[in-house]
Structures are given as structure tokens and as C-alpha cells.
Design a protein around this nucleic acid. Structure first.
Length: 476
RNA sequence: GGCCCUAUCGUCUAGUGGUCAGGACAGCGGGUUUUCAAUCCGUUAACCGGAGUUCGACUCUCCGUAGGGUCACCA
């Protein structure tokens, strides 16, 4: 299967019924990767045929999410193709045309029952512990379809299906999977089962990637392709992304976040793409940090995993940090600062904040971490003089008396540094020499504590630099 | 219940009959000019069970077990 005869066309076809989370996004990513790797076409198709469940703004959120990650579509809601719109609700006449083809072949008929009657059939089947099959109730003769009743597919041939899946290998299903499913609903909208196949045919889709929930209905799709006398696309079943704990597919219930949340929190698009690509796929080597371009080059269908993978946010943080390291410092600093409402802070605070950036850089996983820690009071000392606990200022077995003596000495040393030479290295040099003589901890701990008022903080030299000479001497 | 799918460290995975079963995240221990962080080094930890095939099974077959999917006028 290494040779792909026709042009690769993939599509990501979400339903705009809610916010998109990483599960859906990963499906889109794989489709995009495969298209790009093969210099093919990637289509974003909006499957909005369920007008009841549709959520306003969902389509926009999907588009924004893909755009954020740089998954650029060649055709989409904003870019129709020769086949027309990429929004299903704008393609109703096309589905009608295809439905008519089936009616003409005697392969589609109006459902003569009421919903209640069908429900009754279903209940009865359940009671008998039998799978419900509408085809067992198929009418002898078909009425003419006037569009007010659901139009059903008449399964042409009951048989056992076996097909090839690029990920799972040979898949098969018994005849129980075959039924007279609804093609067009009573409200005039087509069902997913029907219209996605019409669209895939019309749009020339070569590879269909989707979750394993569709394996069971593949025989239905296959029989439709046969009815239209069209060769089916290549199928690739993607493994589910599982929630952090548990064994079930990731859902909003177990904290699946809106993709744009990750943008807000300051994850790097390339890191997100890298991480997502590695959920259920793996290139085989020991390299884990991949650029977008490397992913496109390396991606392959046959290395997609069969079984589900847990979503691990800690690893995402690690990947993100690795990607941040690859980015220019200036860009990162800009991003880190972007979370602060600088207009609400005074000049001196902003000045100190900027001097603190290198320290915060080491401590963060995402761009928003600095802001989060700042808000939590982690860096409160840069705004105001901290309050002390005199017991904590003394290092280990040392005495308060000694400590005060040391600090006085340090104060004298620091006073001698000119304002314009107030740099970390210079501060360190003077203090260090003295600290070596009387004991490092005896001097450095109290110095750091008196500047920060915290038991945990960056080193005293950095603190002194950030606070400035005047404030430093004041606090000692 | 019918049909279908899956199964290697806690997590993501490498592995396609012969490996000390490798890597990463997390964990643990240590170094790195005081604390924390960062960083570096080291380290704990896995082939679901049982038969069979074979000189030899994590790898192949079968049977279990466990988990998952699906059986809509939802996608």
C-alpha cells in the first residue's frame, strides 16, 4: 500500500454541535498531515445536518482552532470547491439528486411507519434480545416519496463484509450490521450515513480517517458505495484518545478542554501539533520533539496505533517547554508579558517584572505560567516590601546576632557598587567573596530572605538586581 | 444480548521468532557555588492468563480474561 495511485484528498468533517476538543482535533491533524505529506488536498467540511443539536459559534471555533495550529485547509466553509459548498446544509439539492438515483434504481423507499411504530419494533426486538433491524419490517411495495416521510435505503444484498483498513488490517462484520437506514430525514435533511458518502464521492476523497465508532457502520457505507457503483476510499481507523483516568474515550465530562483554552494558556502551536501527533502515532525512533515540517515528512498511516491512548497533560507541558526552547527569547518574553494588564501597574513594577523574565522563563511550561504565579503572589516581593519572620531569617544553627552582623557587612559591600554597575555578576562578586569567609549559607540565606520574605525564591543576586540598588539596601 | 475491535513499565511507546525487552513523561536518588526552580547524571518499573506451533515465543495459532465500540429520523 505504499503506492497511492490517485491524488490524495483528505477531509476533516466535524459536526458543529459543540466546542471542539483534542479528540476531534487529532483526527483533523492526521488528515491534514497525510494530505500535506502527499502534496494532496485537505478539505474542512462542516456536517451541520442536525439542526437541533447545532450550536451557534461552533463552526467558527472549529475554524479558529485549526487556524491557530496552522492546519490550513485547501477547501472549507470559506473556500468552496468545484463541487460547491463545504457546508452540508448548503448542499441539500445534491443529496436529493443522489437520493433520486437510488429511488430510480429501486434502492430507496419512504418509511411508511410513524416514529412510534418504529420505536415499538425496536422495543420488541430488545425484549427478545435481538438486534433491531428495520429491514425485517420493510414494506412489500414502496410508496412514492413525497419528501414528508423519511427515505430509507434498501440494502441491495445481504452479505458478510470484509474490508481493508490501513491501521487495523482486515476488518469484517456480519449481516447484522446491514440495515435499511434512513437516508433523508422527515425534516428534509440527509443523515450522516448518507450525505458524508455523497460528499466524499463528489469531493474525490481518497482517504477517510475517523474513530473506531464507525467500524460497525462501515458495511452500510460499503453497500451504499456499491449502490452508486463507486469504489470506496481507503479507510484508516484512528485509536481513541482516552481521558486522563479511566478507559473511556475523552469527553467533556472528564475535563476535555476546548482547544482554544490551550491557546489562551500559552501553548505553542507546534508543540500542540507535536504532542497530538504522538497520541496514537509514533515514528519509531527515540526522537520525540518534532517540528511541523518533520512531522509532515515522517507521518505514515501504517505507524498509527491500534489501541487507545491516554491524554497526558504532564507530557504536553514537557513537549511545550521543549518547543519554547526552540523559539527566540524575545518572542517568548513578549508572550509572557502579554498576559499582564500593564496599564494597571506602575512603571517601577513593570521594570522589575521585565528584569524577572529570565527567572520566570526557567520556571514555566506555558506562556501564562509567569502571570499565574505572579497572580498567586509568588513574586509579591517585587511590588512591596515583604514582612519577615525573624526566626526564619537565620540560617540553620547560626544566631540572629551573627546574621545581623553579616547583613550589615553585605550592606556595606553593596553600597560600594555604583548604580550603573548594578548587574547580577557584580552584585554576586562582592557578596560571594565575603560569604566564602563566614559561610555561604549564613550570608546567602538571610540576604535572600530579607529581600523576598520567602523561603523559596530565586537567588539573592538576581533578587537584588531586580529590585535595584536603592530598594535592596532598604530591605537588608 | 448480537456483531465487531483492542491488550508491552503508572502513562505514551520501540519491538514483526533468538534483545540484559529500548526510549520519553511522571516517580525516586544524587551532582551542580544557600532555598525553590531550571539543568545534568543515575535509578525503580512492563510483555493479561492458559494451551498449542517451534530447538526457541512479547512476537504466530486457538481458548479464556479484561477493556472498548456499535446496534438512532446523532454525527
Amino acid at each position: 500500500m505504499s503506492e497511492t495511485p490517485k491524488k490524495v484528498v483528505t477531509r476533516f468533517a466535524p459536526s458543529p454541535t459543540g466546542l471542539m476538543h483534542v479528540g476531534g482535533l487529532r483526527t483533523g491533524l492526521f488528515a491534514w498531515l497525510w494530505a500535506r505529506k502527499n502534496n494532496g488536498t485537505f478539505i474542512l467540511r462542516i456536517e451541520d445536518t442536525d439542526k437541533v443539536r447545532e450550536m451557534p459559534g461552533s463552526k467558527e471555533q472549529i475554524m479558529e482552532s485549526l487556524s491557530w495550529l496552522g492546519l490550513v485547509w485547501d477547501f472549507g466553509p470559506d473556500k468552496p470547491g468545484t463541487w460547491g459548498s463545504c457546508i452540508q446544509s448548503e448542499r441539500l439539492d445534491i443529496y436529493k439528486k443522489y437520493a433520486q438515483k437510488l429511488i430510480d434504481k429501486g434502492l430507496a423507499y419512504p418509511d411508511p411507519y410513524t416514529e412510534e411504530q418504529v420505536e415499538e419494533f425496536r422495543k420488541k426486538a430488545e425484549e427478545n434480545k435481538q438486534p433491531f433491524l428495520f429491514r425485517n419490517h420493510r414494506p412489500e411495495t414502496f410508496e412514492v416519496w413525497d419528501g414528508t416521510k423519511p427515505l430509507r435505503f434498501k440494502v441491495p444484498e445481504l452479505k458478510r463484509y470484509e474490508w481493508h483498513d490501513e491501521v487495523r488490517g482486515t476488518l469484517s462484520a456480519g449481516m447484522e450490521a446491514l440495515d435499511d437506514f434512513v437516508l433523508i430525514k422527515a425534516d428534509g435533511f440527509p443523515t450522516y450515513n448518507f450525505c458524508h458518502i455523497v460528499d466524499d464521492i463528489e469531493m474525490g476523497v481518497s482517504h477517510v480517517m475517523r474513530g473506531e465508532e464507525f467500524i460497525a457502520s462501515t458495511p452500510k457505507f460499503l453497500s451504499l458505495y456499491e449502490a452508486f457503483e463507486v469504489t470506496p476510499p481507503i479507510f484508516a481507523t484512528l485509536p481513541p484518545i482516552l481521558g486522563e483516568s479511566g478507559t473511556k474515550k475523552l469527553s467533556k465530562r472528564d475535563g476535555a478542554k476546548d482547544v482554544l483554552e490551550y491557546k489562551k494558556e500559552g501553548y505553542v502551536p507546534d508543540a500542540m501539533v507535536n504532542f497530538l501527533a504522538f497520541i496514537g502515532w509514533n515514528p519509531g525512533g527515540e526522537k520525540e520533539v518534532y517540528s511541523r515540517q518533520e512531522l509532515v515528512e515522517t507521518f505514515s498511516l501504517d505507524r498509527i496505533q491500534k489501541s487507545g491512548a491516554r491524554f497526558n497533560p504532564e507530557k504536553l507541558d514537557w513537549v511545550n517547554k521543549e518547543h519554547i526552547k526552540l523559539l527566540p527569547l524575545e518572542e517568548t518574553y513578549k508572550q509572557m508579558l502579554s498576559y499582564f494588564e500593564t496599564e494597571l501597574l506602575d512603571q517601577e513594577t513593570i521594570h522589575r517584572l521585565k528584569k524577572l523574565l529570565p527567572v520566570a522563563y526557567d520556571r514555566m511550561n506555558t506562556y501564562s505560567d509567569f502571570y499565574r504565579d505572579f497572580k498567586a503572589g509568588e513574586y509579591s516581593y517585587i511590588i512591596e516590601k515583604p514582612s519577615f519572620d525573624m526566626k526564619k531569617i537565620v540560617w540553620k544553627q547560626d544566631t540572629l546576632e551573627n546574621t545581623q552582623k553579616y547583613l550589615q557587612e553585605v550592606k556595606i559591600i553593596l553600597s560600594s557598587i555604583p548604580e550603573d554597575l548594578w548587574e547580577i555578576e557584580n552584585i554576586k562578586h562582592g557578596v560571594w567573596e565575603y560569604a566564602e569567609k563566614v559561610g555561604r549559607g549564613n550570608v546567602l540565606w538571610p540576604l535572600r530572605y530579607s529581600l523576598s520574605g520567602k523561603e523559596k525564591s530565586p537567588d539573592p543576586f538576581t533578587l537584588a538586581f531586580v529590585l535595584g540598588k536603592k530598594e535592596t539596601l532598604l530591605r537588608i
